[in-house]
Amino acid sequence: MVIYGLIRENRKGSLLVDTQWEECLARVDSFVRRTFPQQNHQLPLSRALYEWQEQLRQRPRSIRLDAEGVYYRILNKLVREAVNMGVGAVELVNVNGQRYIGDGLEGPVRIDIYGVPGNDLAAFMDGPHIVVHNNAQDGVGNTMNEGKVTIYGDAGDVLGYGMRGGKLHIQGDVGYRVGIHMKSYRDQVPVIIAGGRAGDFYGEYMAGGVLILLGLGKKNEQSIVGDYLGTGMHGGVIYIRGQVPQHRLGKEVGSSPLEEKDRALLIGYLTEFCADFALNLDEVLAEEFLKLVPVSHRPYGKLYSY
């Protein structure tokens, strides 16, 4: 606990002393012994741990970690401790399904992930920028408060559940239940942009924020989005590039044409998205967009007898 207090001070500018680094390493050491008591010292974990400690002793601005065969609890602990010590860039290589990377992490750090991270990437995250140089799995950005996740590939189901702020940029397709119960608060407006297609229940219960679906590379006969689109939606806005047949829409959403301010908003969001994935903004904007908003902000206001 004391360590965290000191580290927070450190972010404001005061210097850390060597003993704190040693204490940090000792904390990780005891954590590893507790969570992996029967550790075989020939395992890749030992190698990763040794390299991590050696690197951290140099007080680096950036750190690189080979995640091959490293148990997720230990991997995340190493990342967390590094971020707490003020490391500004973390590179994780050979990631193979480790869950919960970046969960609850705060602060300005960039985490580059090579390989496929596991479920709940960036859950409860509050600030960092995670870049996945591959596909991602389910639950990315669960209840995320701030920060950004850029995914150079596809992502799975339940992305951005209850997300309150920050951005998810996905180059390819996304699965079912994306953007459920997203909400905005004051100047926090969560944004999920997917370059490809989405499954059923897109934007269900949506209470705020922005969902943008582009359907790039979609074959003609394919539908850009699944059924029950925006069911229970009572806030926020969904922009879809192309058309969606009426039967796919939840009964709580209505479509309307793009206004000038929608266009300005879209250009703002898509400029960043196109820069991330080297796309041509004009080509993306060339097709018509459909705007979906809730019919009522009180879809369940008349259910009760008083």
């Binding site: 969960d103 639950g139 339940v158 239940r177 459920i180 806030g235």
Partner: peptide
């Protein structure tokens, strides 16, 4: 605005999903 809590957690449809949220919270 209405504060709607959906009946289920839409990220928990099974015991395995529950485990995922429990450990996401433990990690956080």
């Amino acid at each position: 605005t209405d504060a709607l809590s959906p009946a289920p957690h839409h990220d928990i449809y099974s015991i395995e999903d529950l485990r995922q949220l429990i450990y996401a919270l433990k990690e956080a």
